[in-house]
Design a protein around this nucleic acid. Sequence first.
RNA 1: GGAGUGAUGGCCGAGUAGGUCGAAGGCGCUCGCCUGCUAAGCGAGUAUACGCCCAAAAGGCGUAUCGACGGUUCGAAUCCGUCUCACUCCGCCA
Length: 426
Amino acid sequence: MLDLRAIRSHPDEFRQGLERKHADPTLIDQLLRVDEAWRNALAEVERLKSVRNKASEAIAKKKRNGEDASADIAQMREVSDRIKMLDDEVRRLDDEVKELLLTIPNIPHASVPDGKDEQDNVPVRYWGDKPAFPFEPRPHWEIAERLDIADFERAAKITGSRFVVYKGLGAKLERALANFMLDFQTSRNGYTEMFPAFIANETSLIGTGNLPKFGDEMFKLEGLPYYLIPTAEVPLTNYHRDEILDASQLPVKYAGYSACFRSEAGSAGKDTRGLIRLHQFQKVELVKLVLPETSYDELERLVEDAASVLEALNLPYRVIEICTGDLGAKETKKYDLEVWMPAQGVYREISSCSNFEDYQARRANLRFRRDETSKPEFVHTLNGSGLAIGRTVAAILENGQQEDGSVRIPDALVPYLGVDVIRPAE
RNA sequence: GGAGUGAUGGCCGAGUAGGUCGAAGGCGCUCGCCUGCUAAGCGAGUAUACGCCCAAAAGGCGUAUCGACGGUUCGAAUCCGUCUCACUCCGCCA
């Protein structure tokens, strides 16, 4: 959430920020209106409580001296009733302020290119040579079915559409990629490996910004205040919730492997085939908690950390900078990594790296202290996929495919998979 | 799932016939003194959030906070209810 005091002192900056994001700038005015009402009610109730506290003290004194205090008590009864009413009012207004604050999106960073939607995103660099095929490249789902390494039909039988069962070398490829990515990010890029729970509570989801607004993108456990995590970002970012870290601990860098569950509400008809858009996929997620003044440098480094996996796997990709209109609600700045998918002839998102500044840190109360005497400040949080495994499988299958239906495995992965080519059964 | 115990400040730990308790005491930490150095000793200080005053900082005033929420009361760390978490025992499991 945004800083309420900052909004009070220069609301125009926030209105403009929301406009850049094509969000509703009048949210700021709504907020300020309720905030003022809240502060007025608060001042009044605190004044009455002050009266009450003094009177209570006087009553205590009288009683100790054996004097009669019944008149004072009767008088205070009225004050107390009024306090009770005002307290309800204050609570109601305070809830309203908090709810609005939780709903208002983050403001884009000054460096983010203006734009309306994804059409206006800006490619910033390209890496790798797209493979040239002397034949018509097949889509990955066809390759996978032919190699008998992924089974969508039976997954639909077991669960439903948008699920997959990996089989044989497909299952091992999934496992090999997870191991490879975790090893890579821990040993090469200095992340601490984490293995979180796949279920998180509502407080955690509010902390990362998935609730209250985006509950319908997740699977909720029936009758419980628990959700299946849509990404390991949720448990990893909440790991230090309500803590005050020492500045010397920063940056905190976590790499967590998890399954990710997405309801994909509203995406009917999109990417209905293959591994691109499933209700469950696995991912290695990178999360950083950093000093505020370093967060944009850390974002650039995060992009490199994610991109270096693609380079190690020799998968062609590009980096695009997301424009203001296409930014998610929580982000101040975001880069997507898009991997080349030869069969469709398009780049597909395989990683998304974002800076949230203190938007999540405020929600999750993630703070640090510069030294023993200084006041706690909010950290900046960042995260990026490093990478989405299902889409990496798809990219490896499509980019490594050969005319005979076999698939060449990237060299870096061979020690993990045990073979350098996946061939169709005879 | 059943039975029980507990939750107080950075940590430990007092505080139940409700009233000068934001909370004794100790440890830790900070500053000063003392000391050849260290240790010990002595003195002072040491929570957070929010609102108001102030151009701002400094500072001042006020309110709230003893797991959370709600209730009783003029007044709650202390009484009542609900919940959460932790621990112990039993059962059940990987």
